[in-house]
Amino acid sequence: MPALSTLLPPHLAPIVLLFASNVFMTFAWYGHLKHKSAPLVVAILASWGIAFFEYCLAVPANRLGSAVYSTAELKTMQEVITLVVFAGFSVLYLKEPLGWNHLVGFSFIAAGAFFVFQKF
């Protein structure tokens, strides 16, 4: 099977990998909240297991991404992607609504990301 770096343009591969890694990490960090009756040690071990797969995606995302993005741009992408994935996870999986205040706060973060990618 060809490597992802040959299937996607260099500027897109890290974004796809970061989205995928964030899905795993969001489940690792917050998925156990739907299973609060499970012992904490089980939640921790399950989270570590899930996080392993997150690292298997995040490390290549950053390695590939460093060829086309600065480290600050990669980190900024990571944070914005994290918010997008978390928002979907919160609403769809945890069934917790997002209020207007969350959307305003996320918008300010996205506005900050805009400036990181500008070449003034």
Score class of each variant (00 low, 15 high):
1 M>D: 08
1 M>H: 10
2 P>G: 06
2 P>N: 04
4 L>V: 15
4 L>M: 08
4 L>N: 08
4 L>H: 07
5 S>E: 03
6 T>A: 13
6 T>R: 04
7 L>V: 08
7 L>M: 06
7 L>I: 11
9 P>F: 09
11 H>G: 08
12 L>R: 14
12 L>P: 10
13 A>R: 09
13 A>V: 15
16 V>H: 02
16 V>M: 05
16 V>E: 00
16 V>T: 07
17 L>P: 00
19 F>H: 01
19 F>G: 02
21 S>D: 04
25 M>K: 07
25 M>F: 05
27 F>G: 00
28 A>M: 05
28 A>I: 13
29 W>D: 15
30 Y>I: 08
30 Y>S: 09
30 Y>K: 12
31 G>S: 07
32 H>A: 11
32 H>E: 12
33 L>S: 08
33 L>E: 15
34 K>V: 14
35 H>P: 07
35 H>R: 08
35 H>E: 11
36 K>T: 14
38 A>V: 14
38 A>R: 09
39 P>Y: 00
39 P>H: 15
40 L>E: 15
41 V>E: 08
41 V>D: 02
44 I>T: 12
44 I>E: 00
45 L>R: 06
45 L>C: 14
46 A>S: 14
46 A>W: 10
49 G>A: 07
51 A>D: 13
54 E>P: 12
55 Y>P: 00
56 C>P: 02
58 A>T: 09
59 V>N: 05
59 V>T: 10
60 P>Q: 05
60 P>M: 01
62 N>S: 14
62 N>Y: 12
62 N>A: 07
63 R>P: 03
63 R>H: 11
63 R>W: 06
64 L>C: 06
65 G>A: 02
66 S>V: 09
68 V>N: 01
68 V>G: 07
68 V>A: 07
69 Y>F: 03
69 Y>H: 02
69 Y>E: 03
70 S>F: 03
71 T>V: 10
71 T>E: 14
72 A>I: 02
72 A>E: 03
72 A>Q: 02
73 E>W: 01
73 E>A: 15
74 L>E: 09
75 K>T: 10
78 Q>I: 05
79 E>P: 02
80 V>R: 04
80 V>Q: 04
81 I>A: 00
81 I>M: 00
81 I>W: 02
82 T>Q: 07
83 L>W: 13
85 V>S: 04
86 F>R: 01
88 G>V: 14
89 F>P: 01
89 F>H: 00
90 S>N: 05
92 L>S: 02
92 L>P: 02
93 Y>V: 11
94 L>H: 00
94 L>R: 05
95 K>I: 12
95 K>M: 10
99 G>Y: 09
99 G>D: 06
99 G>L: 07
101 N>V: 15
101 N>C: 12
102 H>Q: 10
103 L>S: 12
103 L>I: 11
104 V>R: 12
105 G>K: 05
106 F>E: 14
106 F>T: 15
107 S>Y: 07
108 F>C: 11
108 F>M: 06
109 I>K: 05
110 A>E: 09
110 A>Y: 14
112 G>A: 12
115 F>I: 04
115 F>L: 03
115 F>M: 01
115 F>S: 01
116 V>K: 02
120 F>H: 15
120 F>E: 14
120 F>D: 11
